[in-house]
Every structure is written in C-alpha cells, then in structure tokens.
Design a protein around this nucleic acid. Sequence first.
DNA 1: GCATTAACAGCCG
DNA 2: CGGCTGTTAATGC
Length: 247
Amino acid sequence: MKSDLHQRRRPPTDEELSNIPWLTLLMPKEHDRAVNALRVGDAEKGDFVCRVGRPVTYWFGNVSGLLKMSTDNIDGQTMTFTGVPPGGWFGEGTALKREAYRYNIQALRASVVAGLPLETFHWLIDNSLGFNRFVMNQLNERLAQFIAAREFDRLSNPDLRVARNLAALFNPVLFPGVGDLLRITQQELAYLVGLSRQRVNEAMIHLQEEALIRVEYGGVRILNLHGLRTLMIDRRNKDNSSKENVL
DNA sequence: GCATTAACAGCCG
DNA sequence: CGGCTGTTAATGC
C-alpha cells in the first residue's frame, strides 16, 4: 500500500484558486477568509488524501488530476465508489458532523488537492449564504448520484456501466471543472468501473458509435450527457416502452 | 459466450 | 523514451 499524502501544504496559486468553483459564490469578506485559510498539496499517484476513520481536519477538493473514492470491506477488498475529477469537493457530510472520514481518497495520478480547514468550513456555513447554497446543491446532487448507484449495482452490461460511470464524472454540478473534455485514461476508467482496460476500450467505441462521446487521446469528450445517463441496452425485449410509466 | 490477462505494434506528448 | 491506445490470442468462469 502506498504512503499517505505527506505533502507540503502551501498557499494556492491564482490559477489553482480559479479552479475552486465555490469561491466565486462568496462575498468579499468571506472570500478573503476562505482564500487565506485554503491550502493545497501535491499528491503523487497512489497517495492517500484521507483515510477511513481519521478525524476530519479539512474539507477537500480536487484542483487538478484524478482522485478515487473507495472503501475497504471486511474481506480486505477495495470497493470503489466513484472518481473525483477536477472541481469536485467531498466530505462535507462528515465535515458538518465533525466525524471521521468514511472513505479513502486516493490519487489515481499526480494531482493537486485543496483543503479548507474544518474551522473555516464551519465559519462559512455559519456566515455565507452563497457557501450554504453550494454545499446544499452538492448534497442534493450526491443524493441523486447515490440513488442512481443503486440501479447501477444491478447493471451487468459493461457498456452501460461505462456509460453511467462517465455520466457521473461529467456531472456539471458536482464536477464543474470537467467541462466537455474529461481527462482520463482508459486504464483509469477501468479501475473506476471495475472492468479490464480492453473491455472499457470496446465499450467506449460502442458509445462513440452511438454519438454519445468522442474518444480522444488521454480523454473523453462528452457529446450527449443525457444519452449517457439514460442509455439502455435491453436485448430481451427491444420494443418495450410502456414499463417506464408506472408512476 | 463473455470477460480477463498477456502481449504487441503504433501513436502521442 | 514512457505512457496510452487499439487489437489479437490464449485462458477462465
């Protein structure tokens, strides 16, 4: 197992600050306080940003790179929940409750990670309307993601698993830093989805044929996010269109 | 059958 | 050159 992030934390550069989406929602006084408290660190591939059970010290976000949210079950097997592309912030639930981290966050490649100290996080919750709105949006979107994950667990079709995973990573609310082009290798995506790289490659070619994405070198361009979220491949009953409208 | 591992050539930065 | 991609062959469930 790789070592913890023994990063030297430093103040963020202007460019790094521009990749922190919630800063623009703050009033000047709040903004100053946040910027003064923010720290960034460089994570090498394999470094842990935080681990299950450690007390929460920071609210973390991805400035650049790619992170993985996972947990270890009793067998010692690692279960991956989701990737965290640039612009993603996480752990606000545990930060609010001042509890311990419930996930491991690990860098899939060299990344820049930002941290907002817990005390500043709470000060912003107590004082900033814009910050509250951001956190509330974040929680709301995560709930939707969680519900979608329940369906996802039952998907056996690899193409669909890749499609749903990509759709989650392209979520503009949770990961506003991604935009149209997600920088991710097919190997990294394979780790997140839990498939082989070759099978992921095949799935992406299918999704490209459906005009949902365009495969590029070292990344994926989104063409139809809604299509990725709702794509169904049901070979058993092709023309079944009535079962959706039960409600 | 279908996915995985292994291996390789070609391409990109 | 090192890493990523697309493809094929062999192997396993």
